[in-house]
């Protein structure tokens, strides 16, 4: 036929996770996994990747689910779409900041097709969903030919578009921890337009018990090759009463974190991004603390 945007590849439809693992393993780097296609096909069209084998996993039963609640934690199956996330009452009611990060993705079609797991597996440090999941302390379940692994998201990324996934491995689900009493979360980002990847994004989780911040997790995206945790800022808040001056100090610490090493590119400048880490962190912390201290 006249037009074909993709180059030929060998196409497989996996019936089980283990079948997918085997095809992926035996083809090594030549193989790619297909779920939503929203990142794979643009990359193929742009020549960024040229898989010779594609394994469609949408044919595997039992991977499209979102289950749980804030007391038990949330489990997101690898075929749950972004739209499933947007529609999930558990996600919307109990994990509002994750809902915020998903629902602000502009394209309904992309949300219909793209999976939550696919979004975070792409490995772009600008992923809004990955940033908030990092703040939430999410882990991913990795299934390969060997033992299953459960890895925290903040150790999952190696570099831009590089993760710890080995040939033959895939994520089968995301495990989001429960949110004990006093826990609040917030997600904020800045982008050129509503449809553009973030210039900077920030996800925050805080837990306040008896007026004292018992836990703080701050994740920052698009300021380094991988999503980072602003650990100094977290430490500043830990065990303290969340006053505005303390929050301001923590936000500055987030900005000055050595992990924050943004670049200048078509979307923004390094200086702007760095500065916005402070503004967004402060605003996100205000959001979580104000709501709790209210």
């Amino acid at each position: 036929m006249l037009f074909r945007a993709l180059s030929p590849f060998s196409y497989w439809e996996a019936k089980s996770i283990s079948e997918a693992n085997e095809i992926l393993f035996s083809n090594g780097k030549k193989a790619a996994l297909l779920a939503g296609g929203c990142s794979l096909f643009p990359q193929m069209k742009n020549g960024l990747t040229k898989p010779e084998v594609i394994v469609n996993i949408t044919t595997i039963e039992g991977l499209r689910f979102i289950e749980g609640n804030r007391d038990e934690g949330l489990r997101i199956g690898s075929l749950a779409t972004l739209r499933d996330g947007e529609k999930s009452p558990a996600l919307r009611q109990d994990y509002g900041s994750l809902f915020d990060a998903i629902t602000q993705i502009a394209s309904v079609q992309v949300k219909n097709m793209g999976t939550i797991v696919g979004n975070i597996t792409e490995g772009t440090p600008a992923s809004d969903v990955a940033t908030i999941l990092t703040a939430l302390g999410a882990k991913v379940k990795i299934v390969g030919l060997g033992e299953d692994k459960i890895v925290p998201l903040d150790s999952f990324y190696v570099h831009v578009r590089k993760t710890i996934l080995e040939p033959g491995e895939m994520i089968t689900e995301i495990l989001v921890p429960p949110l004990p009493d006093g826990t609040r979360t917030a997600f904020l980002n800045l982008a050129k337009t509503k449809e553009d990847p973030a210039k900077v994004n920030v996800g925050v989780l805080t837990r306040v018990v008896d007026g004292v911040c018992e836990e703080a997790r701050i994740a920052v995206g698009a300021v380094a090759p991988v999503i980072i945790r602003a650990k100094k800022a977290e430490a500043i808040l830990q065990g303290e009463k969340p006053e505005p001056s303390l929050i301001a100090k923590a936000a500055e610490a987030a900005r000055d974190d050595k992990g924050v090493r943004p670049i200048t590119d078509i979307r923004s400048t390094a200086a702007y991004r760095k500065e916005m880490v402070e503004v967004l962190t402060r605003r996100a912390l205000h959001k979580t603390f104000q709501i709790t201290t209210h």
Binding site: P42, A106, K192, T193, K194, E195, D196, P197, D265, I266
Partner: peptide, 16 residues
Amino acid sequence: NLTDSFNKYKIASMLD
């Protein structure tokens, strides 16, 4: 040209 796609050359969507 570093902005050679609609992912990089942004035109307004309905939300903008």
